[in-house]
Amino acid sequence: MNAEHAREVAAAEFWVYLMTDLIMFSVLFACYAVLHTATYGGPTAAELFSLPNALVETLILLVSSFTSGLAMLAVHANKKDRAMAWFGATFILGAAFLVLELKEFHELIVDGNGPQRSAFLSAFFSLVGTHGLHIFTGLLWMAVAMVQMKKKGLSTFIVSKLERLSLFWHFLDIVWIFLFTVVYLMSRIA
């Protein structure tokens, strides 16, 4: 297997893995759809979720998706320092997203609306929390990738890894679109 073919194969494998991740998320979405009215007498989604906060989170993630795209443009133009800078920006935005999300979780739990309160809240925390865990993993991966970029430059080996990382990051933003729509926006249907 030559290097070009190996890169193609690795990219294909990673894409297929992303597809299986989508199916995992679909199970969580299905659970949320089925259980979101099971509040067991507790507060409903409309009462609990702050839309402005969710909008800010969405915009942060969208900008971070854009900066990761800019980072990849720099990578393909062989501009290592610019790429590092844009990945750094992506990292900070991703971290900010997580901080906001953890804050929201903390407030809910402190008010007694943690995941053990009802099936609805179990579904909420699991769906949003799983996405958050993926973001955390992405940040960890980004940190490692930046170290690798610094040490080894922009060889084909490193570039193919960065391509997969940016794919992952974009994919997380796509999942968030649906999370934002189904969990937050649709809480105000009535």
């Binding site: 099971a38 509040t39 067991y40 053990q116 009802s118 099936a119 179990s122 579904a123 699991s126």
Partner: peptide, 12 residues
């Protein structure tokens, strides 16, 4: 202690 599939607290 979540409640996805329990018989109480709204689980199914």
């Amino acid at each position: 202690g979540m409640h996805f599939f329990t018989t109480d607290f709204g689980g199914n």
